[in-house]
């Protein structure tokens, strides 16, 4: 299967429909920080540039704001395509923006252990500890297990149901 076919099948989208109108990139708030703009990413998929795409910073910098998806004249859900690319990159252990990957994984770890998260709390903590907190992020699941987090924790009673969902999530386990 070609890279284009694989992306289409997994995302349910039709990336070959992109005719390079730039509309997605013009409205993208994070364009200034990306290595490939969203329309370029679509073109690279069409051209079978698997390595360039999965190793790009763009797929991790995308803020999932859905502006591109809302505006694409060909109805391509670009944000969903990028979600798919992130998942493919994860499967192959690619993740050019290590800190962003680390954050998402730590976030989900807290949900696995508690059924609930403290996303904004994590952000506030990050502010207090500045850069060093990135190292500490990996500690979160450990702290949760030992009930050592200083937030007031609220927790789901029936954690079994939540864990069952995680067990089916092959990529989270990676």
């Amino acid at each position: 299967m070609s890279f284009l076919q694989e992306v289409n099948r997994r995302s349910g989208e039709q990336v070959q429909l992109c005719f390079q109108c730039f509309k997605c990139s013009l409205g993208c708030p994070v364009a200034f920080a990306m290595d490939y703009l969203p329309h370029q990413l679509m073109r690279l998929i069409q051209l079978e540039k698997r390595e360039e795409v999965l190793n790009s910073h763009t797929i991790w910098l995308c803020a999932a704001c859905e502006t591109c998806t809302t505006r694409c004249p060909n109805g391509i859900d670009i944000a969903k395509v990028i979600d798919t690319l992130r998942q493919m990159a994860m499967e192959e252990n690619k993740g050019t923006e290590k800190e962003i990957v680390a954050f998402h994984k730590s976030f989900l770890d807290t949900v696995y252990h508690l059924g609930r998260a403290h996303e904004v709390g994590l952000m506030a903590l990050y502010k207090l500890r500045t850069k060093r907190f990135l190292d500490d992020l990996w500690l979160v699941p450990e702290l949760v297990k030992r009930q050592k987090l200083s937030f007031r924790l609220s927790k789901v009673e029936n954690l079994g149901e939540v864990k069952k969902i995680f067990k089916k999530a092959a990529l989270w386990q990676k």
Binding site: F107, R116, V156
Partner: peptide
């Protein structure tokens, strides 16, 4: 009763099943 986290901005970036299941 006993609501759980929806996965917020993280689940859909990492795993398609978690993104819906939570």
């Amino acid at each position: 009763p006993d609501w759980n986290c929806c996965g917020a901005s993280s689940a859909h970036e990492i795993d398609a099943y978690l993104a819906v299941g939570l």
